[in-house]
Design a binder for these strands. Structure first.
Lengths: 233, 233
DNA sequence: AACGCTATTATGTATATACAAAAAATGTCA
DNA sequence: TGACATTTTTTGTATATACATAATAGCGTT
């Protein structure tokens, strides 16, 4: 109730991180309960709770009711990777972006796609294939399936001048997403489009998005091996 | 009962997601203020605030004081990628982890390594090469350079039974890191070790860490192309 | 010992209240 | 008009309180 500076959950969190780093709270060790910490820091339990929940989300501690909170034994560090629009990615490198539509059609979803999107057999999806170029050189090959049920209006889009991602991002936000990255050997068609030899290594990013539980789109983005995805922690 | 469920921040969040999905709250559109929403949902403002903050963290809405909350128009989203210990990664798949040390020596840093770590010419580093196996099959080839100035005690480690990463995470935490992911063609030695043919695609992860500005380690982790790095948003 | 019930306890979350902070909107003055 | 200070609005966060929920520990019965 006092007008003095309150203990911020951020400061509390920082101090907790320090203790974990300094091994005052050793890996695997049980740390004091929220009430005790609240007393120690001179803060409300809710404030300590917030700090601890954030640490738990960051993977530094593990919490269980009744059992208490303990420092994670093997802190899984996390790297954050920005997923920009291809166009911005290319333009930010000072290159000229251009775009080519390869194909666009409503098709019955192939079994692999249907299964990954958990759709009913026979569902028809919009299938778009296109190429993104940086300074006229192939930069990314995009093979995308869009669920019209979750993205009404797709069928009216021709995707002649702008890619489906730009349209989706502007019109159909997603609430959940799954990303996968891998290396693969270029297929004949991909190779021809990207200007590499069949069998050459390519960098593949796959993205699957949902909005409120309904699958929106599954996309496979293929880059030549020279592509590097970089992230700083 | 349904009364409590209705007031939960989860339920409120779900309803908000639904409205965004249904475009009742269109992309770029301003949504009602917290107080109005609290009244509408029959909840406290703190509860609505929590729901909105979670939506903001997920990138679905953008919030600014005084300006209010609006549905995100062009989300430059971020994927978080977990960087676990190889051993845990393998064991969590239910496979048996094993480890083989290939070489360990103090060496003058090659020019490429020296430059990336911004070290003085002639600096000697610990060079460790090893292999991580899942159920006796090659899973990851590790080629690592460690700066003894930032990781005192390396020279006393033989790395016969456990890899350098386990020792590093337990003894020399880092404050900054740079990650890079790419596809590459397997070199002759890598290919032999990983059981693939030279030139076959491999997935390469590079990691560079610093502690308080001083470079600690540079590591190149090579996986067969079957490896997928997955992340959920 | 094995099982199941209950009490205990730490975390999880909602609420009302109060105040802080940021930023847009507005007013003031040269 | 334009720069700068002030007001107002909206989100951000701390607090005390209350109750919910999950999981353990303990007890008693068979």
């Amino acid at each position: 109730m006092s007008g003095t500076a309150r203990r911020s959950s951020r400061a509390i969190k920082a101090e907790m991180v320090r203790r974990i780093a300094a091994r005052e709270w050793p890996p695997g060790g049980l740390i004091p309960g929220e009430e005790a910490l609240a007393r120690e820091f001179g803060a409300a339990r809710a404030t300590v709770n917030r700090a601890l929940q954030e640490l738990a989300r960051a993977g530094l501690v593990e919490r269980r009711r009744k059992a208490g909170t303990r420092v994670t034994l093997s802190p899984v560090r996390e790297a954050r990777i920005a997923i920009p629009l291809v166009r911005h990615e290319i333009e930010s490198r000072g290159a000229v972006y251009s775009y080519t539509l390869l194909s666009r059609a409503m098709e019955a979803a192939p079994e692999v796609v249907r299964a990954r999107l958990a759709l009913k057999r026979g569902t028809r999806l919009m299938h778009v294939r296109c190429l993104h170029l940086a300074d006229r050189a192939a930069y990314q090959y995009e093979d995308r399936w869009i669920n019209p049920a979750a993205a009404p209006g797709v069928e009216a889009q021709d995707f002649e001048r702008t890619g489906p991602n730009e349209w989706l991002v502007a019109n159909h936000p997603f609430s959940e997403a799954e990303f996968a990255f891998a290396a693969a050997a270029a297929g004949d068609e991909e190779a021809a489009l990207l200007g590499v030899r069949p069998g050459d290594p390519v960098f593949v990013a796959e993205r699957l998005t949902w909005l409120a539980g309904e699958p929106v789109t599954l996309v496979r983005l293929v880059h030549p091996a020279s592509h590097r995805m970089v992230s700083r922690l």
